[in-house]
Design a protein around this nucleic acid. Structure first.
Lengths: 219, 219
DNA sequence: ATAAATATTTAGACAAGCCTAAAAATATGC
DNA sequence: GCATATTTTTAGGCTTGTCTAAATATTTAT
């Protein structure tokens, strides 16, 4: 198999992530939005990826990864997440800074460099945002079942396990609130405006759209 | 100034390196050879770089960097050499492995990542091959005067300070001969076939084309 | 069920960076 | 100094990945 372009890798990665939590097909619009590209561009790339048997593409219906397309996506994701963790662990970057760097680096690191980073990091299973890192065999590691903060029972105490956003401003906000991966908090109440929580030092009402990005270990 | 493409950066870096040890202009052929591209492609890129005021280009004569073109070249070179050193120091790569990785990474690391690597490395002045690393102000550090092994006096004892080749096979050969940066050797004799040297453990006749890549601190 | 709205695809264009082939300029050898 | 060889440029073409505008398909709402 010939090497894929960075753009092709990005499309496959996006298709994977858009379909990760469902079995439905991914639409052209979704891809266009996420990749910040016009729908017409998506269509033309989808035709190419289909010709390479990396996706199953039904015009007007949507797209799904084939097994080999999924492997490519997982490989890129492994690079991305190892890089993010490496940058935080060895170069003192904050979790809010590493996504942008990783977006570029993920396409240019060799398998050898991937392997060395994994080794130095002790073959980690999760990146600084709590996202699972595909194994060297390109399987997603078993993650404990997580529950969204919006669905965490009142009075339950738990630990933040994952934050599903790469938005710098949002992550910066969480930094200032000391709401990082591993932090323990208690849900005081679920309210129409969001989730009222108690941390070691403070009480906050976390607005719905913020809370929806925060995941706790399931009870 | 808008961001340059990887290709443009590569051209500027090559022009810099081809003209580093002389004041003469760089020819299109030289560039085509070094960049593994046809001369016609060089011409068309030179026109673009000239329009951006990154080079002074006289058709049929050759090309030289302008001050701003030189800054770009030094920036890329700084990235390249910091990356090489980082890979050897922190990820256990050999000096023969790092050039290829750095060729790709040099174009995609942020200024922030450059700064963190420099800091972790203690603001180094030379890379694993003994090549000088441009400072953060984009000036080449003062290097002690070096003498080519071919021009090192018989019976002189000195230390290998620089190897001006990135060829994997050549560097691998030097590894097996234990002829690395910092190794002390004595020149037994300059011969028509090369340089006969004495290391801690062995005697070798280093062929001319190998010796010409090896540099010793000047006497 | 059909009209209106939305999503998708097609058609055609463009920029970058490469190519080949041919023309033009420069350099070399006798 | 002229003929030949070499180098460089021009002209035109190709691929990748994007775009806009228009055509077509699908979905939604009445």
């Amino acid at each position: 198999m010939q090497p894929l372009s960075e753009s092709q890798e990005d499309y496959l990665k996006s298709i994977f992530q858009l379909s990760e939590n469902s079995t439905r097909l991914v639409s052209a619009m979704e891809l266009a939005d996420r990749m910040d590209v016009k729908p017409a561009s998506v269509t033309s790339m989808l035709k190419k990826l289909a010709k390479l048997s990396l996706i199953d593409y039904t015009p007007y219906q949507g797209v799904a990864l084939t097994p080999s397309g999924k492997l490519v996506a997982l490989e890129v994701l492994r690079h991305h997440r190892l890089i993010e963790l490496f940058l935080t662990e060895f170069l003192d970057f904050g979790w809010e800074e590493v996504h942008e760097q990783a977006e570029k680096l993920e396409h240019v690191i060799s398998e050898e460099l991937e392997a060395r980073m994994a080794e130095k990091l002790g073959h980690p299973t999760h990146d600084p945002h709590g996202d699972p890192i595909p194994t060297v065999d390109l399987e997603l590691p078993e993650s404990p079942l997580l529950a969204n903060l919006l669905r965490t029972a009142e009075n339950h105490t738990g630990v933040i396990k994952r934050v599903t956003s790469q938005d710098r401003d949002f992550l910066n906000l969480l930094n200032r609130l000391e709401l990082n991966i591993g932090v323990e908090l208690r849900v005081i109440s679920q309210e129409r405006g969001g989730v009222r929580i108690q941390t070691a030092t403070d009480q906050f009402l976390i607005p719905v759209d913020m809370a929806s990005k925060i995941w706790m270990e399931a009870e």
